[in-house]
Simulated assay, not measured.
Amino acid sequence: MTSSPKVAPQGAITDVPGIEAGHFTDSRRPTGCTVVLAREGAVGGVDVRGAAPGTRETDLLSPSNLVERVHAVMLSGGSAWGLDAAGGAMQWLEEQGIGLEVGPARIPIVPAAVLFDLYLGDARVRPDSGAGRAACEAASSQAPAEGCVGAGAGALIGKLYGVERAVKGGIGTASVRAGGFTVGAIVACNAMGDVVDPETGKVIAGARREDGRTLMDTRRSLLAGEPPLRLVQAANTSIGVVATDAVLTKAQASRLATAAHDGLARSITPAHTMLDGDTLFALGTGASGRPAEMVLLATMAAEAVAIAVVRAVRAATGVSVGGLHVPAMRDLAGP
């Protein structure tokens, strides 16, 4: 597979103290997984907005439930099969002595979400526990790679009018600093809809017209009455993590995950559909020692997510697998 090109830096989720990130990218076909580590534990929250999610341990993050802190979040390709990657992260964390002490055992808490990337290559190749372990071994506090790596390796954008008219998706990261806080995000973008630059309102990646070189604008096409050519159940989904150094309660972490979805809505259209499993996690490391200012943090989280989505498609490269060629944003004939 072609390595992802570099795009201008705009921060990363690892700018948040206490957060590390790592990828595993499978060389056999475009798929992989991405882990976000919080070795010291972080207060966690989640919001699932898509109607076709694949998740693990999300109920645990409800503010009314017992466990306060998580030690990692796993993002994976492979659809429901990819949930196995979280088990590999648990094994690795246990070996590092990291986890929740429960009687005689130490149990790492690793929520997870998956996306559908089985269009490209042999669908029997998908992330497993070994892939999750490899992502943990690769994790560091350095800015993670972007584009067609990790959970974004097999991501596609704009499939409502057929996968043969899609554009390559990927994974992106960003961070925002304001008011003495840092908020970072990492998003694997595999949306059914198009990606829009929130600064201009223009579609920059998504469903292509029959000429294969220009974008059709899914939102406008739907509103104009152009019926979708193909509807594939649960074959999409954008997943990600937002993290902050603010001191959060569990309820605040849940609310931060909710607000972060505003970033998906700004940068993906349509978002949160019946055919997407859009899921965002929120982590609070508390490293700043400062209590949360939720209006500010919510604004920062949405901003970081929107930037991360745009960066995901700008860093992506085209791919050809099994007779299917999917170009990237940079391959098209113009904005």
Rank of each mutant, 00 (worst) to 15 (best):
M1A: 15
T2Y: 12
S3G: 14
S4F: 03
P5C: 09
P5L: 08
K6A: 15
K6Q: 15
A8N: 14
A8F: 14
G11P: 00
A12C: 13
P17M: 07
G18Y: 01
I19N: 03
I19C: 01
E20H: 09
G22P: 07
G22R: 06
T25Q: 02
T25R: 00
D26M: 10
P30M: 07
T31D: 07
T31V: 11
G32C: 01
V36M: 11
L37M: 13
G41Y: 04
A42C: 13
G44V: 06
G44P: 10
G45Q: 10
G45M: 13
G45D: 14
V46E: 11
V48Q: 07
V48M: 10
G50S: 09
A51M: 14
A52N: 08
S62V: 00
S64F: 15
N65C: 14
V67K: 11
V70R: 01
V73A: 02
A80S: 14
G82V: 10
L83V: 05
D84A: 14
A85I: 05
G87A: 10
E95F: 02
I98V: 14
G99Q: 01
G99K: 01
A105F: 11
V110Q: 01
F116E: 01
D117R: 12
L118I: 08
G121N: 03
D122I: 11
R124W: 00
V125E: 03
V125K: 03
R133A: 08
A135N: 08
A138D: 02
Q142D: 15
P144E: 06
E146P: 01
G147T: 08
A151I: 08
A153K: 11
G154Y: 12
Y161K: 06
G172R: 02
G172A: 04
S175N: 06
V176S: 04
V176P: 04
R177D: 11
G180W: 06
T182I: 05
V183N: 05
G184S: 05
G184Q: 10
M192T: 12
G193P: 10
D194F: 06
V196M: 12
E199S: 12
G201P: 01
K202H: 09
I204L: 10
I204N: 13
A207V: 12
R209K: 11
L215W: 00
M216N: 14
M216S: 15
T218L: 13
T218V: 09
G225F: 07
G225N: 11
L229Q: 13
N236M: 03
V241F: 02
D245Q: 01
V247K: 09
L248Y: 09
K250G: 03
K250I: 04
Q252G: 11
A253F: 03
L256P: 04
L256K: 02
L256M: 04
A257H: 06
A257G: 10
T258A: 13
A259G: 02
A260V: 11
G263L: 11
A265S: 15
I268L: 04
T269A: 15
H272N: 00
D276K: 03
G277K: 08
T279L: 07
T279V: 05
T279E: 07
A282P: 07
A287C: 01
G289F: 12
L297I: 10
T299D: 15
V305Y: 12
A306I: 05
A306C: 04
I307C: 03
A308W: 04
V310L: 13
G318C: 11
S320Y: 13
L324F: 08
H325V: 14
D331G: 07
L332E: 13
A333I: 02
P335G: 08
